[in-house]
């Protein structure tokens, strides 16, 4: 199969498994890793509360201000994140079960997001069918696909299915 060769041919995948990431069950994660989640939560909660203060109040007083509910949810985020932070401080705290990050993973996501962004821009200049073929080919290439089956046949088939379904069958203006 062509794709098998392609997958195994890409360097980042054949690299030896780097199993030293923080989530590895063998070594307990550092305090910084354990606190990262709760601290992000606190930051989001504070941001929500701050944003709630920018909501303009109506001239007539109701039973409830429109700020009340957003403030409540922001406070809930802060409160529970704080509690989660306290619980995460002891080193024997239970860990989250996560797969470890592989080398090349971040690059794959960034490149895929780039391809999607380019698609959004190009769509306004080119026909839906052309840009979609390009996007599909791009996503396949970014994630390790090679060969004419992956870069030509597959994009054309996917685009044809999408176009038939949306443009012809559902009459959505794409």
């Amino acid at each position: 199969m062509t794709y098998d060769a392609a997958v195994h041919g890409t360097p980042h995948i054949t690299a030896p498994a780097a199993e030293t990431t923080a989530e590895n069950p063998a070594t307990p994660p550092s305090l910084a890793v354990r606190l990262a989640g709760p601290l992000c939560g606190i930051a989001v909660g504070i941001a929500v509360i701050a944003l709630a203060q920018t909501i303009t109040l109506p001239s007539i007083d109701g039973q409830f201000s429109p700020r009340w509910w957003p403030q409540l949810s922001g406070a809930a985020i802060v409160l529970f994140s704080l509690a989660a932070a306290v619980r995460a401080i002891p080193s024997h705290a239970p860990m989250d079960e996560l797969d470890s990050i592989q080398p090349g993973g971040v690059r794959r996501i960034a490149a895929s997001l780039g391809a999607i962004a380019a698609y959004g821009v190009l769509w306004h200049w080119l026909d839906f069918r052309i840009v979609t073929v390009l996007l599909v080919a791009g996503l396949v290439a970014v994630n390790g696909g090679r060969g004419w089956a992956g870069l030509v046949a597959f994009p054309v088939v996917v685009t044809a299915v999408l176009w038939l379904l949306f443009s012809v069958l559902l009459r959505v203006p794409v």
Partner: peptide, 17 residues
């Protein structure tokens, strides 16, 4: 922190697009 960044980046990119 990153999630906060995404939240504030959203309206800007939304508006642009």
């Amino acid at each position: 922190m990153r999630t906060t960044f995404r939240n504030t980046a959203m309206p800007i990119s939304v508006a642009a697009v």
